[in-house]
Structures are given as C-alpha cells and as structure tokens.
Design a protein around this nucleic acid. Structure first.
Lengths: 332, 332
DNA sequence: CTGAAAGCGCTTACAG
DNA sequence: CTGAAAGCGCTTACAG
C-alpha cells in the first residue's frame, strides 16, 4: 500500500494524504471531512509511509550508527540498550554493529553505515589511535568516539581517563590490604592504547607502594585466554598477594585458573578489576572494582550527538571524560 | 559527493559511473580507460552511493530487523552478535531493537522497522500469544518468531520446547541427587506463555518423583526481584533441598538471597536452571543447566529468513524446534 | 561502448 | 482548502 494508491482510494491528491499522514493536515487547513476520510483509510490499510522514500526526499535518515567491539560485554550491552531507547524517544533509530575487535570488520561496518547515511556515528574503535580511516571516510557525518581513544582531532569524544582510573583503582587496592608485597598485573591486547594507559596508571600507584610487580598479557579479553595465560604463569611463579586485572572477563579467567591449579580460591588474595561488580556475589575474596557510570556515558553521547546535529561545523571538537566509580566487594 | 557530480567530473554519464560503482562495468563493456578514470575519482572522493536512494530504486533495503526483549541477557546478546555477523556476510544489515519486555515498546519498534521496510523481521515477542498485532501490521514482510511463541499461523518459528526442556532439566536434577524431598520452583512473569510451559514440564517430572513442590514467581526476570521474592519466601518456609529456576538472573537472585539470609551458600542444596552455565565457576553447589545451542538457533533463523526471502508466498509457515542441552557444574 | 530518460515513494514549495 | 509538479539520489531498460 502506497501513498499514491491511498490517495486514489480517498479521491484526493497525494499532497493531502501526505499532510494527514504527517499530522500537518490542520496546519494546511485540510477539511475535517477529508481528514476523517483519509484517516479511516490509513487505519484500514495500516498504511505506513516508506521511510527510505520520505528520508530521501527530505534529506534525513533519522538513523544513528553505533559500533562496539563486543556485544557480549555487559558494559557495551547496557550502553547500547540505553542509547537505543533514548534514540527512539527522539525519533532516531540506532543501528548497532559489532566489530568483534577486528579492524577490518570495523571498517566494513562503518562503510556500510556511511552508505546508509547515518546522521551520526558513535564508535568504540578497534583501529589504531593514529588511523586515518575515519578522517577519510566520514565525509560530513558527525563522528563520536567513545571508550576507545583516537589521535584524530576530528570527532567528539566521550572517554574515560584510563590512566587515572587505573591509578585510583590500584590505590584503593593497596589501601584495602596493607601487606601487599607481590602484585600481578594481568591485561589483554597489549598494544591497545587503553592497555598502555591502564598499565601506566597502575605503575604510578605501584611505585608509591614499594611492591614487586609482574606483568602478564593475554591475547584477547576472554576468559579462556586469561585462564591459559595465568595457569602457565603459575608454573614458574609463586602466587601473588594481589592481582590487578583490566577486565571482568580476565578476572573470570583468573578464578578459573586458580580453581584449576589449587582446587580452591585462595581467599587471602586481593583482586582489583575494571568492570562491573554485579557478578561478584559469590567471590570470597576482597575485590575492588572500577565501574563505568553507564548512564552518564549515555547522557554524554546524546549530548554530543545533539550538539553535532545542530551545528555540524565546529571549529574544535570536544572531549568529555567520565570518571569511573570505585566499588568494593567483601571489603570489611 | 553524489553520483551526479562524479559523472560531471569524469565527463561521463551517470549511467557509466553507476556501472563501475556496482561492478557492472565489464558486463556493459565500458572501456578500460573510462573505468580507470572513474575508479580513480571514486577513490579520490571516497564516493559511496546513497543506500536509501539505491534501495528505493531497486525496491530493496538489504535490511533485516531483530527485536529482542533484553539486551543484557547474554543469550540474546550472543544470538544478536552472531546473527549480525552472518547477515553482513550476506550483504544484509541487521537492525536490532530491544523491547525491554514491554509490549507497547515492542509495537513501536516493530512499526518503526516496518516503515524502514526491513525485508524480514525476527522477533522474540513480549506480546500475548493471541495478539493479532503482527498479522495486522506485517503486510508482506516475512515474519520469524523465535524463542517466544505465538498462536498466529503466519510467520516461521524457531522455538524451543520449553515444556520438554523443563522436564528434562528436572529429570536431571532428580537424577543428580536422589534424596530430594522439597523443591522450590522459582519463575518470573507468571503469565508469560513460556512460564506456563516450563512449569508444566517441571510438574510432569516432579510428579514422577514424589516430591513436595512450592511455586514462587518474581515480577520480572531480574536478580533483585528474585532476591526479594525469595528472601520473603524464606521467612515462612524452610530451606528446600533443591531449587528449580527458569533463568540465570533468577539464580543470581537466589544466591544473593541465600547470602543475605544465611551469610553463606548452603552447599548441599541442588539447583537447576535455564541458562548458560559459563558464569558458574565459583558456585559450590551442584548445578544443572539447560542451555541453548546459540549456533543452531542462528542457523535456523538464517534458514528461515532465506526461505522467506526466496519464496514469499507460502501456504503454511513452518516451525523448527531447537532442543536445549543439559550441562552440569560440580556434578562429581 | 555510452547517454537520455523514466521511475522508485515520498514531501513540499507553489499556484489556484 | 486542494492539486499538479518538481525533485531527493540512485538504477536500468532502451536507443544509438
């Protein structure tokens, strides 16, 4: 059913139907009789205007793109969910794509979204910080980086201060237990910009506390990779007093490894982790978490999008930093 | 940059540019020189054809809609992720919307997706089984129900047999521990069709094993609701020998409640749960899980979509049932 | 081998 | 108050 046909059925012009479909009938003083007649037909046939045709005509798609590296990461899932709801409230459809942390995949997703003329693209990128891909391919599309950093000056940014959050997390770790001598730092994807910052923040704190530090990196942010890496490591190293991990999945891997090697969780080991503490109920250990304010991030993203949609040309793009919040589990 | 302008720059017609953009240049025997000239410009200006305009012209959107009730449910997240990847491989963009288990929200999402002329809609519906919404609003759009049942005859279906899966899960529960006398069944959203089936399957098994059964329903599939309900319940009831929960979030709630009331997890209580066992490493109890084969579900969905896209008119729509798989944690 | 022309389904000045 | 007409950016017969 198209507008055309409906107009014929109603015995009026396409213009008139279009007006009543878009709620502009009153404004253009279409007669009440006509409105009624047309409305009845719209309901009867469940007519819905083709969004592509309408969009093409008025030069809008009412669509916003979101690229995240991992769908199964609770943090991203939550942000995606909230963002989608808020976008729909505003009449925008969010299109969510997942790069699986694969740069090539990400570029495909982005290209696809650009072709669909998303009105803004929000991306937690897996590309190197100095990649020029987005500069070259964005065209006029407003770009918003979040969570992952880029050196590009183009694009709004909603980030966290990984260095400082890691520092604060480590400080909390050392304050929660004062006899820590040996710490293991366990990260993943060592060459990620984020990884550097978290390690640096950790180091800054560790240096203040006179502890021995060992570093270990898994290949991916995945439980099994962490388990494997940590089990291996335990072959040649004594159990540390504390472990600092850069994600929850890595922490899961740590627990799995401990169970594998010791058959139980050594309860006196303290753990610091980035990520949401919600799943930690059953952990006997002291655990310190650095968790994102998802709501604040979503708000910041919406602000950025709205800002860009209103005045697309902006001399300098802005950066907003959302600090994480530190929580404890089993701390006294 | 539009095709029009590029054509002018290249000094050729729009037709020619369109051919080379769409890789049909050879087919229409465009001269190599022209191809080269145009290709260079395409690269130089990063020209990407407007998907809406192209889609409008050829009557396709290369878009598939997916509506799920909960983004933060690992199970759906995984399916969404896999599906999105597989769709992109096939040249389709998956648009994922989340109803948050709110019928009104779901109808909004669906209407939005219909307006965008998704070529198929996959939905895990939160509408009542006898809702006629989709019959009335789908039009020609192929519909695929998954995970949640509908009485409608229209639409392919990829489901699981909740009754039987619950039966098998309960059977496993009773086989893993043979001295069970009192069982608590803990579900959520009692009036959901799925809830009935799971309870029925559970009952069928329980009847065979001569056990006392109590039933408890939380308002939503959410940890905190389950905690609250179970804590309340424990005021007036002794601890059961076993608990049968219909989702992982409910199980989390159970653990939280136990910690709240007893300060520790009673290890001799056996638990049966629907959902993925991956997060269960630290549970001391015997836990029996009924987990979905996500891969099989995704494959079935793709089959259904392809089937519908090829021959839209089908006398009778089909139903495919994907059995769950039973896994144990800490079972010897 | 290449171009002029029609048309996808809408919206919106513009004219009456 | 309503309609004829142009045009959004493409693709694709068709003609040459």
């Amino acid at each position: 059913m198209k507008l055309d046909e409906l107009a014929k059925l109603a015995g009026v012009s396409r213009t008139t139907v279009s007006y009543v479909v878009n709620g502009k009938a009153k404004e253009y003083r279409v007669s009440d009789k006509t409105i009624e007649k047309v409305s009845a037909l719209i309901k009867q046939y469940n007519f819905k205007p083709n969004a592509m045709a309408a969009g093409l005509r008025v030069g809008r798609t009412n669509t916003i793109g979101l690229i995240i590296p991992d769908f199964e990461n609770m943090s991203y899932a939550r942000i995606a969910n909230h963002l989608e709801n808020r976008c729909r409230e505003r009449g925008y459809q969010l299109i969510i794509a997942c790069s699986n942390d694969n740069p090539e995949n990400e570029m495909n997703c982005a290209t696809n979204l650009f072709q669909r003329r998303v009105e803004a693209l929000i991306v937690s990128t897996s590309l190197p910080v100095d990649s020029t891909f987005y500069q070259e391919n964005c065209g006029e599309t407003p770009l918003i980086y979040f969570d992952r950093r880029s050196n590009s000056e183009q694009g709004m940014k909603v980030l966290s201060d990984d260095e400082n959050d890691a520092y604060l997390l480590a400080e909390k770790l050392f304050s929660v237990q004062d006899n820590i001598k040996n710490v293991l730092f366990l990260g993943a994807v060592a060459d990620l910009d984020m990884s550097h910052h978290r390690q640096q923040g950790f180091e800054r704190s560790a240096a203040r506390h006179n502890v021995n530090v060992e570093y270990l990196y898994a290949n991916r942010f995945h439980k099994y990779e962490a388990t494997e890496a940590f089990v291996d490591w335990l072959q040649n190293n004594p159990l540390p007093d504390a472990i600092f991990v850069t994600s929850l999945t890595l922490m899961q891997g740590v627990f799995a490894a401990l169970l594998k090697v010791f058959k139980h969780i050594p309860e006196d080991m303290v753990i610091a982790t980035f990520g949401n503490h919600e799943m930690l109920d059953l952990v006997p250990n002291k655990v310190v978490c650095s968790v994102q304010h998802h709501d604040k991030i979503v708000e910041a993203l919406l602000r950025s999008v709205e800002f860009k949609l209103k005045r697309k040309k902006l001399q300098y793009d802005q950066e907003e930093v959302i600090p994480r919040q530190i929580l404890c589990n089993n701390c006294e």
